[in-house]
Structure formats: C-alpha cells, structure tokens
C-alpha cells in the first residue's frame, strides 16, 4: 500500500532520514516508534509530499505521491501532532470545513461530519470554540477533523501528546475502531506502551534509520533480555553479587548501593525468579519488594541503541 525506498532527507549537515525503507500493508495498524527527533514526522511529511527529499522514492496506493496527487490525497486522512484547527470557528464548523476539502457532495459531507462528531464524542461541544475545550477534547477535535471524510489511510502523528489518561484511552480505542472499519493506520509515537497496545507491526526509528521492525513479539525476541527482575531494599556483598551473576540465564546484574536496588536481566523467561529467590534464601539475604518484568519496546530500543526511548 505504501512503499518508501531508500529515502534520504537532509537539513544541511543533519541527516533526518537516512536511507529509510518502509512497507505498509493494507489493513494494518502500523507503528512508527522512536524518540523525539528520530525522523518520524519528517518521514510522514515526505510521504505526504509536503517535504522535498534528496533521494529515494515513495509510492502510495501504487502511485508516486506528488503535491498535486489530489486523487491519492482524497483517500488519506492526516492528524498532525499539533492541534491544527481554526480558533475562530466552532467544533462543528471546523469538522465540516475539513471534511468539505475532501468531500464535495453536501449531503454526504453533512452525514460524515455528524458521524465524526459522534465518533470523537463531541456531541455536547459542537457549538463551542476550540479555545473553550479541554486538552483532551481539543485532541479529539483534531482527530475528528482528520478522519471525518472516512479515508482509506489515516496518518496519526503523536495524537496523544499532553492528553489525560481517560482521553488517551478513548483515542486509542477510536483508532482501533477506525481500523476495524477498514482504514489502514500509520501511528507515530514515542510512547512505547501505546504502540505496543494498538499496533500490529512496528518500525523503530533512530537518527532517521529503521533499526528494527516486526510485530511486538518479533521485536522482543530480537534482544537478549527475556525477563528483568528488580529487587528493592537489598544488601549484597561482592561475593553474593558474583553468585547471582553465575546463576543460569542471568546475563547482567546491576546493583545500586545507594538505593539498594538490584536489577537482574535474564535471557530466558522461565523460573528465573524462583532460582534467584532460592539463592537469596540460601545466602540468608533479606529484601523488600520484588518485581518481575517482561521486556518492553524500551528494552528493545535500549539494547539496540544503548539509550532510552525517552532520552
């Protein structure tokens, strides 16, 4: 459905997209995950023919995407990172306006506008001006303006930034509903939990390069960490630390003598906790709370790049 091949975008000396390749299939919820400045928005702007790029090719629905590809644009809905609506116009007028840029038929436009208002849960706010809306409602209006024309492809660029948890859940549910109705979704975010929650396939970007891609499970299988055990309030001798390091499947042990936190990373996800607790019991070591965590996308990013996603 969307094919980006070897796309290079430079801003002077800075390489924003470094031979980026993306393949997005019809019907999927495709996640583009990466820290701020990794090139997610630049990639989307190149895809939408807003930005010139230095090298490579981009096709959408099998055709080259150009600024005057109006028929292609008609099938795409965009929800930008910043709320982009007319402050002087009401909720309903804004949605109607943006829908009207895509749908010429008046009856169909009205119907779609109503549907978008219902979809975003803005029925009670239709006559209100954007400045009167809360942050969450404003984000929902931003989304409604982007999807009102019922596009085949929806591009959502960090749609949940600065949104309260309740609105965030509603937005994520709405995105899945759009996908169920037949829209292909491209979802860019630096919130790994969201990407993990809704995306069927993910590409992780860093410095404009795709550093990993696959389903969540596939990505997690790419790294050594299968389980991370965290123990609080524990006092250990160097010998005991060496003993933990020698346990089966343990490949990394970090101990903070200041906070008394022990972090143990294991390559297998079975029986690690039992083995570790058994060892501590044998050594007569007392400890506070114990947590066991399966790997997250942040671990994937951390292991590949050596830094946190939110750095």
């Amino acid at each position: 459905m969307i094919h980006m091949e070897n796309v290079v975008k430079r801003y002077g000396e800075l390489v924003a997209l470094d031979h980026l390749n993306l393949d997005i299939r019809e019907g999927e919820v495709f996640g583009l995950l990466g820290p701020n400045g990794s090139g997610k928005t630049t990639a989307m702007n190149c895809l939408l023919a807003l930005l010139k790029y230095d090298k490579g090719s981009i096709t959408v629905f099998g055709q080259e995407m150009r600024p005057d590809s109006y028929e292609l644009k008609r099938q795409i809905g965009v929800v930008p990172q910043e709320v982009a609506v007319f402050d002087q116009m009401t909720v309903q007028e804004n949605i109607d306006y943006f829908c009207g840029l895509y749908v010429k038929d008046k009856t169909r436009r009205k119907e779609y506008t109503e549907e978008a208002i219902r979809f975003a849960g803005l029925e009670d706010y239709r006559k209100m001006l954007p400045r009167k809306l809360s942050g969450g409602l404003l984000r929902r209006l931003n989304i409604a303006c982007g999807i009102a024309h019922q596009p085949r492809l929806v591009i959502l660029d960090e749609p949940t930034v600065a949104v309260d948890p309740q609105s965030r859940n509603r937005i994520l549910e709405g995105i899945l509903e759009l996908n169920r109705k037949g829209s292909t979704i491209i979802y860019t975010s630096h919130y790994m939990e969201e990407v993990e929650q809704i995306c069927s396939r993910i590409v992780i970007l860093d410095h404009g390069r795709s550093i990993a891609s696959g389903t969540t499970e596939e990505l997690k299988r790419m790294i050594r960490t299968a389980e991370t055990i965290l123990i609080e309030g524990i006092v250990l001798s160097p010998e005991q630390l060496s003993g933990i390091q020698a346990l089966k499947h343990v490949f990394q042990v970090d101990y903070d003598r200041g906070t008394l936190h022990l972090t143990v990373k294991c390559t297998s996800a079975t029986h690690n906790l039992i083995r570790l607790l058994h060892f501590l019991e044998e050594e007569g070591v007392s400890f506070g709370q114990v947590y066991s965590q399966l790997p997250t996308l942040n671990d994937v990013f951390l292991e590949i790049t050596g830094k946190e996603l939110r750095d």
Partner: peptide
Amino acid sequence: RADQSALAARRSVAPTHR
C-alpha cells in the same frame, strides 16, 4: 503556507486545488 503553521500544513495535504 505549510512551513508557517500546522494548520497550513494540514490544509496543504487536502485534495482541494491550491
């Protein structure tokens, strides 16, 4: 102008003739 505001960028990707 898409390089001036997010609103302009959003309007620039719409299929209405410039």
